[in-house]
Structures are given as C-alpha cells and as structure tokens.
C-alpha cells in the first residue's frame, strides 16, 4: 500500500515538475473525462431502463418473465406485451422483405450497370438526403401518401412500407460501398471466362460483397426496429395481433409504440411494463448488432 502511495507521489512530482509536464498531464486527464462523458449515456440509459424493466423481463410474477412475451395485455398486472413483440417482428420482417431487395438491387444497378455521371449522382444524393430525414417526417409521409392518398389505411401494410422507406437509403448506400470494395479484377476474371454481366454480378461480385452487405442490412433492421415516429400515424395499435391485411383488423402494435403509450400513462405498473419492453427492445437490437459483427467477421475470414 505504501509503495503505491509512493508511486503516486513520484508520478505527481513528475507531472508537476514544469509547466510543460503539467499541461501534458492536464490534457490527458481532460481527455479521459471526455471519454467518460461520451460513454456514460449508454450505461445511464441501461441502468435506468434495467432498474425498472429487469423485473418485467426476467421476473416470475404475473405477466413477467416468459409470460411477458407470450401473453397479450390483460387486466391490471396480468398479461405481457405479446402484441408489441409479435407486431414488431412482423413489421420488421415485412419491411425487410420489401426494402432489402429493392435497395440491394438498386445499388447493384447503380454501381454495376451505370457509369459515374448524372444518374448515379442523383441517386446517391437523394439517398443521402433521405437517410438524414427525421423519422417523424417519414411517419407523416407514410400517413399522407400510403394511408390517405393510396387508401391503404392504417395497419401493418402502411406501417411496414413506411419502415421500408426508412431502410432503403441506408441499405442502398452500404451495399454500394460493399460492391465498390470488390476489386475490378474479380469481375474481369469472371467475364474473361465468358460469364455474362448478370452472372458475374450474382455469383462473384455480390458474393464477394456479402460481408459488407449483411452488416448494412442488419444494422438497418436494428435501426428501424426501434423507430416509433414512422409508426404512430401508419400502423395504428392493437391489443392482439393483426388478423387481416386491410381495415381495422390490420392494425398492429409495436414495441417502440407500446413503450411510448405505456410510459405516458399515469399507472405505475404500465410504466414498469414500458421499461420492460424497452429493455427487451434494447436486448434485441444489441443482439442484432453483435450478430452483424460476428457474421461479417466470420464470413470475411472465410472468403477473403
């Protein structure tokens, strides 16, 4: 112990022996504080959400633990958020089913089939702008265009299409980057064997770009999973799961919407459920991020 104090004392003398030493030490110290501030929100949020929500997700009372995911909202404490859990999964699967192919093939066309020029610049510019648009604007657009103008009505279709719109710019741009990183010589090798452009793109270029592509896709999924604003005006809400594709039967709950609805409710047990849902959502998004990381590293090691 005393040797540690001694070491600290020596250190203190070293850093204070001159102005230059002291300022060097001071900046090191300040930068360390900055990084603490930078990472603290993550832990503060986690602690805040988990301190109330943990009991909901992992506890064993009524509507807690596994029941939290498997039962629909009930009276009082009973019931979980199965409607929100299933709704989010359905919304994300549908949004991905529409948004991922559109953006991947769009990126393939723009990167592989057009040359740098006006078309490409316009597509890249619009998707960059689109990626920066606040999500509430997507919600408003989804309501005005899909729900109202196209008469789709609120529900799972309008909700998932709005989420798909949100995914498109991110997935398009990451796919483009991944395709660009594939060396030209791989495409040439395939073409020189007599392969057509399409077969080269499908079998060689996309395959080589797969790690980057899958990372972009999973990150986009993780992002739209937590979006509330696009769903407020487009998906409606539901205490059960959607039973039809149109009309009020198609209304669908989602985890972010449920969090928002429960947290603004004065009843304390609903606020607890909101925290539980938030914790579950965070775990899901985190899992997807980790999987994205693992997949891209695994596949990269296998292929390149």
């Amino acid at each position: 112990m005393s040797s540690r104090v001694g070491a600290l004392f020596v250190y203190f003398r070293t850093v204070t022996q001159s102005r230059r030493h002291f300022f060097d030490f001071l900046f090191k110290f300040l930068l360390a504080i900055v990084i603490l501030i930078v990472i603290s929100p993550f832990f503060l949020v986690l602690i805040q959400v988990a301190s109330i929500g943990f009991q909901q997700v992992f506890g064993s009372g009524p509507g807690q633990g596994l029941e939290f995911f498997t039962t629909f909202p009930g009276v009082g404490l009973a019931g979980g958020v199965r409607n929100a859990f299933v709704g989010t999964v359905e919304l994300v699967v549908l949004a991905g089913g529409v948004g991922i192919p559109l953006s991947v093939f769009g990126a393939v066309y723009i990167t592989e089939y057009t040359q740098a020029g006006w078309t490409r610049a316009i597509v890249e510019f619009t998707s960059d702008v689109l990626a920066g648009i606040p999500s509430i604007v997507f919600g408003a657009f989804g309501f005005a265009f899909l729900v109202d103008f196209l008469h789709l009505g609120m529900g799972i279709i309008a909700g998932s299409l709005t989420l798909a719109f949100m995914m498109i710019p991110t997935v398009l741009r990451t796919t483009q980057e991944a395709l660009r990183a594939v060396p030209m010589s791989l495409r040439e090798a395939s073409l020189a064997l007599g392969a057509t452009k399409w077969s080269t793109t499908w079998n060689v270029t996309l395959r080589a770009a797969f790690p980057g592509l899958i990372t972009g896709v999973l990150l986009a999924i993780g992002r739209v999973m937590g979006e509330t604003a696009p769903l407020i005006f487009t998906a409606g809400n539901n205490l059960s799961v959607p039973t039809s594709l149109t009309g009020s039967g198609s209304w669908v709950a989602s985890m972010p919407y449920t969090i928002w609805a429960y947290i603004s409710d004065p009843r304390e047990y609903l606020q607890a459920k909101a925290h539980g849902t938030a914790l579950a959502l965070m775990i899901m998004v985190l899992t997807i991020d980790v999987v994205a990381n693992l997949v891209s590293r695994k596949v990269t090691r296998r292929l390149v």
Binding site: S185, E188, L193, R207
Partner: peptide
Amino acid sequence: VYDLRKHIGMVFQRPNPFPM
C-alpha cells in the same frame, strides 16, 4: 462476346481467385 471469351482464356497480373 461470351462465346469469344469461352474460347480465349485469360490469366491476370495479380492472382484473382474468386472468394469461393
């Protein structure tokens, strides 16, 4: 051009095996 390249093979400056 696809038939042509079927009859004329090519080896490049840098080895470029497919990621397979």
